[in-house]
């Protein structure tokens, strides 16, 4: 079973994303900010990370940069999922090694479509 880490400071969003991803066959873990996500990732890197941008303690971009530097850190597929919807943010995310980008609000179709494109499902 593929593993997934959902990183978002909103419990509601984590819950919605978890429902969608579990239905798609992922074993899900959650983190409420970038630092917590980094701790989880150090124990074991997930196959897939759904990543919010703006969070307290450590934001999504900082997490991505740190995670990519870890041994094996180039492997996880990272998809941003954020209210930041301007092209500059998207370009910055891609430049930092994000694989895909979802602009909130999202739904199950959008997540499924992106995962299909990325070959994860």
């Amino acid at each position: 079973m593929k593993t997934c880490l959902i990183v978002d400071d909103s419990r509601v969003i984590r819950k919605v994303a978890r429902q969608i991803l579990e239905a798609l066959g992922f074993a899900c873990d959650e983190a409420e900010n970038g630092q917590a996500a980094l701790d989880v990732s150090k124990a074991k890197l997930p196959d897939f990370v759904l990543l919010d941008w703006n969070m307290p303690v450590m934001n999504g971009l900082e997490y991505l940069n740190a995670m990519r530097k870890m041994p094996g850190g180039s492997k996880p597929v990272v998809v941003f999922c954020t209210t930041e919807n301007d092209i500059n943010h998207i370009q910055e995310a891609l430049g930092s090694g994000a694989n895909e980008y979802i602009m909130k609000p999202f739904d199950a179709d959008i997540i499924r479509g992106k995962l299909e494109q990325l070959g994860l499902i």
């Binding site: 919807n85 998207i90 370009q91 891609l94 602009m103 999202f106 179709d109 959008i110 479509g113």
Partner: peptide, 15 residues
């Protein structure tokens, strides 16, 4: 719309 450009379109193509 933002919704339409996220259905099926890879973000690299969007950019």
């Amino acid at each position: 719309s933002q919704f339409e450009v996220q259905r099926g379109l890879p973000v690299t193509h969007l950019v």
